[in-house]
Protein backbone atom coordinates (compact mmCIF):
# COMPACT_ATOMS: atom_id res chain seq x y z
CA UNK A 1 0.00 0.00 0.00
CA UNK A 2 2.83 2.38 0.88
CA UNK A 3 4.02 1.78 -2.66
CA UNK A 4 1.31 4.10 -3.91
CA UNK A 5 0.48 7.78 -3.57
CA UNK A 6 -0.67 10.76 -5.59
CA UNK A 7 2.14 10.44 -8.11
CA UNK A 8 3.89 7.55 -9.76
CA UNK A 9 4.22 4.42 -7.58
CA UNK A 10 7.65 3.27 -6.38
CA UNK A 11 10.09 2.64 -9.21
CA UNK A 12 10.97 -1.05 -9.23
CA UNK A 13 12.61 -1.70 -12.59
CA UNK A 14 15.82 -0.66 -14.28
CA UNK A 15 14.13 1.70 -16.74
CA UNK A 16 11.44 3.03 -14.40
CA UNK A 17 13.79 5.78 -13.23
CA UNK A 18 14.44 7.13 -16.71
CA UNK A 19 10.72 7.15 -17.53
CA UNK A 20 9.98 9.06 -14.34
CA UNK A 21 12.75 11.50 -15.13
CA UNK A 22 11.06 12.29 -18.42
CA UNK A 23 7.68 12.72 -16.79
CA UNK A 24 9.11 15.16 -14.22
CA UNK A 25 11.15 17.15 -16.76
CA UNK A 26 8.25 17.64 -19.14
CA UNK A 27 5.81 18.53 -16.37
CA UNK A 28 8.23 21.08 -14.96
CA UNK A 29 8.51 22.59 -18.43
CA UNK A 30 4.75 22.53 -18.92
CA UNK A 31 4.27 24.24 -15.60
CA UNK A 32 6.84 26.89 -16.50
CA UNK A 33 5.24 27.54 -19.89
CA UNK A 34 1.81 27.70 -18.38
CA UNK A 35 2.74 29.99 -15.52
CA UNK A 36 4.74 32.37 -17.72
CA UNK A 37 1.96 32.46 -20.28
CA UNK A 38 -0.61 32.77 -17.55
CA UNK A 39 1.11 35.75 -15.95
CA UNK A 40 1.48 37.48 -19.31
CA UNK A 41 -2.13 36.66 -20.10
CA UNK A 42 -3.48 38.13 -16.87
CA UNK A 43 -1.21 41.15 -17.20
CA UNK A 44 -2.65 41.86 -20.64
CA UNK A 45 -6.20 41.44 -19.37
CA UNK A 46 -5.67 43.95 -16.59
CA UNK A 47 -3.60 46.45 -18.55
CA UNK A 48 -5.86 46.58 -21.57
CA UNK A 49 -9.27 46.39 -19.89
CA UNK A 50 -11.74 48.79 -21.45
CA UNK A 51 -11.54 52.20 -19.79
CA UNK A 52 -13.68 55.21 -20.72
CA UNK A 53 -11.91 57.46 -23.19
CA UNK A 54 -9.07 55.03 -23.86
CA UNK A 55 -9.27 53.66 -27.41
CA UNK A 56 -7.68 50.42 -28.56
CA UNK A 57 -4.33 51.06 -30.25
CA UNK A 58 -3.78 48.53 -33.03
CA UNK A 59 -0.32 47.49 -34.11
CA UNK A 60 0.38 47.87 -37.82
CA UNK A 61 -2.04 45.34 -39.23
CA UNK A 62 -0.56 42.34 -41.04
CA UNK A 63 2.93 43.81 -40.94
CA UNK A 64 5.57 41.10 -41.31
CA UNK A 65 7.07 41.86 -37.89
CA UNK A 66 3.81 41.51 -36.02
CA UNK A 67 3.20 38.26 -37.86
CA UNK A 68 6.59 36.98 -36.84
CA UNK A 69 6.56 37.99 -33.18
CA UNK A 70 3.83 35.40 -32.66
CA UNK A 71 6.32 32.74 -33.67
CA UNK A 72 8.86 33.56 -30.95
CA UNK A 73 7.23 31.35 -28.27
CA UNK A 74 7.20 28.60 -30.87
CA UNK A 75 10.97 28.72 -31.20
CA UNK A 76 11.28 28.06 -27.48
CA UNK A 77 8.79 25.20 -27.61
CA UNK A 78 10.43 23.74 -30.72
CA UNK A 79 13.91 23.89 -29.22
CA UNK A 80 12.65 22.18 -26.08
CA UNK A 81 10.84 19.49 -28.04
CA UNK A 82 13.82 18.77 -30.28
CA UNK A 83 15.93 18.42 -27.17
CA UNK A 84 13.47 15.98 -25.64
CA UNK A 85 13.24 13.93 -28.81
CA UNK A 86 16.95 13.69 -29.57
CA UNK A 87 18.42 13.34 -26.10
CA UNK A 88 15.59 11.56 -24.33
CA UNK A 89 12.79 9.95 -26.30
CA UNK A 90 14.74 8.25 -29.09
CA UNK A 91 17.53 6.72 -26.96
CA UNK A 92 15.33 5.60 -24.08
CA UNK A 93 12.67 4.24 -26.41
CA UNK A 94 15.18 2.16 -28.35
CA UNK A 95 16.53 0.82 -25.07
CA UNK A 96 13.13 -0.04 -23.58
CA UNK A 97 10.98 -1.08 -26.52
CA UNK A 98 13.07 -1.61 -29.62
CA UNK A 99 15.58 -4.10 -28.27
CA UNK A 100 15.93 -6.81 -25.66
CA UNK A 101 19.25 -6.55 -23.76
CA UNK A 102 21.46 -9.56 -24.47
CA UNK A 103 22.44 -10.57 -20.96
CA UNK A 104 23.75 -13.95 -19.83
CA UNK A 105 20.84 -16.38 -19.25
CA UNK A 106 17.83 -14.11 -18.97
CA UNK A 107 14.69 -15.66 -17.50
CA UNK A 108 12.55 -16.63 -20.49
CA UNK A 109 8.80 -16.48 -19.82
CA UNK A 110 5.57 -16.61 -21.75
CA UNK A 111 2.57 -14.59 -20.61
CA UNK A 112 -0.75 -15.55 -22.17
CA UNK A 113 -3.68 -13.22 -21.66
CA UNK A 114 -7.32 -14.23 -21.83
CA UNK A 115 -10.67 -12.93 -20.64
CA UNK A 116 -10.04 -12.27 -17.76
CA UNK A 117 -6.70 -13.37 -16.48
CA UNK A 118 -2.99 -13.84 -17.08
CA UNK A 119 -1.23 -17.19 -17.38
CA UNK A 120 2.49 -17.08 -16.72
CA UNK A 121 4.46 -19.90 -18.27
CA UNK A 122 7.87 -20.66 -16.68
CA UNK A 123 10.47 -22.78 -18.52
CA UNK A 124 11.92 -24.45 -15.45
CA UNK A 125 15.54 -25.47 -14.89
CA UNK A 126 16.00 -26.67 -18.50
CA UNK A 127 15.29 -23.12 -19.61
CA UNK A 128 13.13 -24.40 -22.47
CA UNK A 129 9.46 -23.52 -22.85
CA UNK A 130 7.21 -26.35 -23.92
CA UNK A 131 5.20 -25.80 -27.13
CA UNK A 132 1.58 -24.61 -26.96
CA UNK A 133 -1.24 -25.77 -29.23
CA UNK A 134 -4.56 -23.97 -29.60
CA UNK A 135 -6.44 -27.26 -29.86
CA UNK A 136 -5.15 -28.35 -26.43
CA UNK A 137 -6.58 -25.30 -24.66
CA UNK A 138 -8.80 -26.47 -21.85
CA UNK A 139 -9.76 -25.08 -18.45
CA UNK A 140 -7.31 -27.51 -16.89
CA UNK A 141 -4.66 -26.41 -19.41
CA UNK A 142 -5.37 -22.72 -20.07
CA UNK A 143 -2.43 -22.10 -22.41
CA UNK A 144 -2.71 -25.39 -24.30
CA UNK A 145 0.72 -26.64 -23.19
CA UNK A 146 1.74 -29.85 -24.94
CA UNK A 147 2.73 -32.09 -22.03
CA UNK A 148 4.04 -34.87 -24.30
CA UNK A 149 6.88 -32.62 -25.36
CA UNK A 150 10.06 -33.17 -23.32
CA UNK A 151 10.60 -29.41 -23.07
CA UNK A 152 7.46 -29.03 -20.96
CA UNK A 153 8.21 -31.67 -18.33
CA UNK A 154 9.59 -29.11 -15.86
CA UNK A 155 7.42 -26.18 -16.95
CA UNK A 156 5.09 -24.43 -14.54
CA UNK A 157 2.02 -22.37 -15.45
CA UNK A 158 0.74 -19.88 -12.89
CA UNK A 159 -2.53 -17.99 -13.00
CA UNK A 160 -2.36 -14.25 -12.28
CA UNK A 161 0.90 -14.62 -10.44
CA UNK A 162 4.26 -13.44 -11.76
CA UNK A 163 7.41 -14.14 -9.75
CA UNK A 164 10.70 -12.66 -10.80
CA UNK A 165 14.19 -12.95 -9.32
CA UNK A 166 15.69 -9.64 -8.26
CA UNK A 167 18.23 -8.11 -10.63
CA UNK A 168 17.81 -10.80 -13.30
CA UNK A 169 16.54 -9.68 -16.68
CA UNK A 170 13.29 -11.40 -17.54
CA UNK A 171 12.26 -11.63 -21.20
CA UNK A 172 8.54 -12.21 -21.51
CA UNK A 173 6.73 -13.10 -24.74
CA UNK A 174 3.20 -11.70 -24.70
CA UNK A 175 0.31 -13.55 -26.31
CA UNK A 176 -3.44 -13.28 -26.18
CA UNK A 177 -5.92 -16.07 -26.74
CA UNK A 178 -8.99 -13.97 -27.46
CA UNK A 179 -9.08 -10.17 -27.47
CA UNK A 180 -6.52 -7.42 -26.98
CA UNK A 181 -5.28 -7.01 -23.43
CA UNK A 182 -2.50 -4.86 -22.09
CA UNK A 183 0.07 -5.97 -19.56
CA UNK A 184 0.53 -3.07 -17.14
CA UNK A 185 2.77 -3.27 -14.08
CA UNK A 186 2.79 0.28 -12.66
CA UNK A 187 5.82 -0.22 -10.42
CA UNK A 188 7.88 -1.39 -13.40
CA UNK A 189 6.52 1.40 -15.68
CA UNK A 190 5.93 -1.53 -18.01
CA UNK A 191 2.99 -1.50 -20.40
CA UNK A 192 2.46 -3.46 -23.59
CA UNK A 193 -0.64 -4.62 -25.41
CA UNK A 194 -1.04 -8.35 -25.91
CA UNK A 195 -2.55 -8.80 -29.36
CA UNK A 196 -4.05 -12.09 -30.56
CA UNK A 197 -2.07 -13.45 -33.49
CA UNK A 198 1.07 -11.54 -32.55
CA UNK A 199 4.03 -12.49 -30.38
CA UNK A 200 5.30 -9.39 -28.60
CA UNK A 201 8.47 -9.53 -26.51
CA UNK A 202 8.89 -7.29 -23.48
CA UNK A 203 11.65 -7.28 -20.91
CA UNK A 204 12.18 -6.02 -17.41
CA UNK A 205 14.94 -6.06 -14.83
CA UNK A 206 13.44 -5.84 -11.34
CA UNK A 207 15.52 -3.65 -9.07
CA UNK A 208 13.48 -3.76 -5.86
CA UNK A 209 12.12 -6.60 -3.72
CA UNK A 210 8.42 -6.52 -3.00
CA UNK A 211 4.87 -7.32 -4.03
CA UNK A 212 3.51 -5.35 -6.94
CA UNK A 213 0.48 -5.51 -9.22
CA UNK A 214 -0.29 -6.75 -12.72
CA UNK A 215 -3.26 -5.03 -14.26
CA UNK A 216 -4.88 -5.01 -17.65
CA UNK A 217 -4.81 -1.61 -19.33
CA UNK A 218 -6.82 -2.35 -22.46
CA UNK A 219 -10.60 -2.67 -22.44
CA UNK A 220 -11.21 -6.39 -22.87
CA UNK A 221 -14.76 -6.98 -21.77
CA UNK A 222 -17.15 -6.65 -18.85
CA UNK A 223 -14.57 -7.80 -16.28
CA UNK A 224 -11.68 -5.76 -17.67
CA UNK A 225 -11.57 -3.84 -14.41
CA UNK A 226 -11.19 -7.05 -12.41
CA UNK A 227 -8.38 -8.51 -14.51
CA UNK A 228 -5.42 -8.31 -12.18
CA UNK A 229 -2.65 -10.36 -10.66
CA UNK A 230 0.29 -10.10 -8.31
CA UNK A 231 3.98 -9.64 -9.00
CA UNK A 232 6.53 -10.89 -6.49
CA UNK A 233 10.13 -9.80 -6.86
CA UNK A 234 12.24 -12.21 -4.82
CA UNK A 235 15.88 -13.09 -4.35
CA UNK A 236 17.12 -15.82 -6.72
CA UNK A 237 17.20 -18.29 -3.79
CA UNK A 238 13.61 -17.66 -2.74
CA UNK A 239 12.58 -17.84 -6.36
CA UNK A 240 14.24 -21.22 -6.90
CA UNK A 241 12.79 -22.59 -3.68
CA UNK A 242 9.35 -21.46 -4.66
CA UNK A 243 9.80 -22.99 -8.10
CA UNK A 244 10.72 -26.39 -6.72
CA UNK A 245 7.69 -26.36 -4.46
CA UNK A 246 5.50 -25.57 -7.44
CA UNK A 247 7.00 -28.35 -9.54
CA UNK A 248 6.28 -30.84 -6.78
CA UNK A 249 2.65 -29.78 -6.53
CA UNK A 250 1.78 -29.23 -10.21
CA UNK A 251 0.06 -32.34 -11.58
CA UNK A 252 0.26 -32.94 -15.32
CA UNK A 253 -3.29 -31.99 -16.41
CA UNK A 254 -5.34 -34.63 -18.20
CA UNK A 255 -5.47 -33.90 -21.91
CA UNK A 256 -9.07 -34.02 -23.23
CA UNK A 257 -9.39 -35.52 -26.72
CA UNK A 258 -11.68 -32.69 -27.77
CA UNK A 259 -11.48 -29.58 -25.59
CA UNK A 260 -14.74 -28.08 -26.77
CA UNK A 261 -16.73 -31.05 -25.55
CA UNK A 262 -16.55 -29.66 -22.03
CA UNK A 263 -18.59 -26.62 -23.04
Amino acid sequence: MDNYGWAMPVAASSFAKSIDLGIWIIHAAMLAIFVLWGIFFVYLLVKYRARPGVLAQREEAHSRSSELTSLIPDLAVVAFEIGLIVFYALPVWSKVKMSVPDVANPLQLEIVAEQFGWSVHYPGPDGALGPRKAELVHFSNPIGLDHNDPASHDDVVMGNELRLPLGRTAVMKLYSKDVIHSLFIPEFRLKQDAVPGLEIPVWVEPTRLGKYEITCAQLCGFAHGLMRGDVFVQTQEDFDAWYQSRLATTPAPDKPTNPSEDF
Binding site: I26, Y88, A89, W93, V96, K97, P186, R189, L190
Partner: peptide, 12 residues
Protein backbone atom coordinates in the same frame (compact mmCIF):
# COMPACT_ATOMS: atom_id res chain seq x y z
CA UNK B 1 2.94 16.52 -24.98
CA UNK B 2 3.87 13.83 -22.42
CA UNK B 3 1.41 11.58 -24.24
CA UNK B 4 3.04 12.34 -27.56
CA UNK B 5 6.43 11.49 -26.13
CA UNK B 6 6.81 7.74 -26.78
CA UNK B 7 8.71 7.00 -23.58
CA UNK B 8 6.41 8.77 -21.15
CA UNK B 9 3.40 7.39 -23.01
CA UNK B 10 4.51 3.87 -22.10
CA UNK B 11 3.37 4.70 -18.60
CA UNK B 12 0.60 7.21 -19.31
Amino acid sequence: LPLGLTVTDIYL
